[in-house]
């Protein structure tokens, strides 16, 4: 009988919603219990949040000063140690999980499955290749441990209402000191919703025209509590920082409502929004490819439409 371990993503005080999405994926493995591991300097708060998720058996708390920041080289040997007791080890396919899980798999001498979209059986999964232009179903050898990342855009966050036990573990593993965290700079101030977990995302493209004009996108977003995204063209043009980029080489998101403003709809952008609930496109070019996949399309000048929307919403 197998058992699943999910590696929690967090910033030291808040559990990242990607963890609850992994838990939904774990729910597709029928009959397997699921634990969550929290590696932190002081994991109390994050462990409590993880324990409150519905469907968790035990939260494993691994406190260590070396775990203050999520360094893959430091986390991986600890997770490899914990993995001894599990048949499946899952992490989110965020930059955190993508950095970490292959290192874990290599230490365990097994393959890693990237971006699980759905679980077919305990050892077979669907995942995207060629930037989502093809979907493969893959099967991993039955005797191998499954180490995988979960494509977070394919899963809704698991509900709360759980009451798992929190169990502290001390791990006897040697940790490397060759990698040192120096800091993170974020382009957004506090108080704005996170692009990857927001229910509504408003993105601007090259059509917005300048960094200054992006203020219009922000205003509308703040009005309805949306996160702000951007196309690669807008990022490359320097209108907005790269951590806002939505698409194949940026963030792959699945908000309930996605509003694309001044975005033509290059394939690489569409790849990042395919799982959105409803897509709204506003563009002055009626032939823009974005209209081919939009649920609601509006042809017109964004500089007149945005102020109107602000009044109406």
């Amino acid at each position: 009988m197998g058992r699943i371990l999910i590696i929690a993503e967090h910033d030291g005080s808040e559990l990242n919603p990607s963890t609850a999405r992994c838990l939904s994926c774990a729910g597709e493995f029928s009959g397997l219990d699921c634990d969550i591991a929290v590696l932190a300097k002081d994991g109390q708060r994050v462990c409590e949040q993880a324990a409150a998720l519905f469907g968790v058996s035990t939260v494993i708390r691994v406190d260590n000063d070396a775990n203050e920041h999520a360094l893959a080289a430091v986390h991986a040997p600890q997770i490899a140690k914990l993995a001894e007791q599990y048949s499946h080890v899952l992490g989110p396919s965020t930059t955190f999980g993508k950095d970490l899980m292959p290192r874990v798999a290599a230490l365990l001498g097994v393959a890693q499955i990237s971006d699980i979209m759905s679980v077919i059986s305990q050892h077979s999964f669907a995942r995207p290749i060629f930037a989502g232009n093809a979907i493969v179903s893959v099967e991993i050898r039955a005797q191998d441990k499954v180490v995988a990342t979960v494509r977070t855009a394919s899963y809704q966050a698991a509900a709360s209402g759980g009451n798992a036990t929190i169990e502290s573990r001390a791990l006897d593993v040697e940790l490397p000191t060759h990698t040192r965290y120096r800091g993170t700079s974020s382009s957004d101030g506090v108080g704005r919703p996170d692009l990857q977990s927001a229910a509504i995302v408003i993105s601007g493209g090259r059509g917005v025209g300048s960094e200054k004009n992006f203020a219009l996108i922000y205003q509308l977003a703040d009005r309805i509590g949306a996160a702000v995204g951007a196309s690669r063209a807008a990022v490359d043009a320097g209108y907005i920082a790269n951590d806002h980029q939505v698409g194949q080489t940026g963030k792959i998101i699945s908000p309930e409502l996605y509003i694309a403003i001044g975005i033509s709809g290059a394939i690489q952008h569409i790849t990042g929004i395919k799982d959105a609930g409803t897509i709204v496109a506003i563009n002055k070019d009626a032939d823009a490819p974005i209209f081919e996949i939009a649920d609601i399309g509006l042809v017109g000048d964004l500089f007149t439409i945005i102020p109107e929307l602000e009044k109406l919403l």
Partner: peptide, 13 residues
């Protein structure tokens, strides 16, 4: 490093 939260800086041997 381009991470989800922004830009992370690490130093390594």
């Amino acid at each position: 490093r381009e991470v989800d939260a922004g830009l992370e800086t690490i130093e390594f041997d």
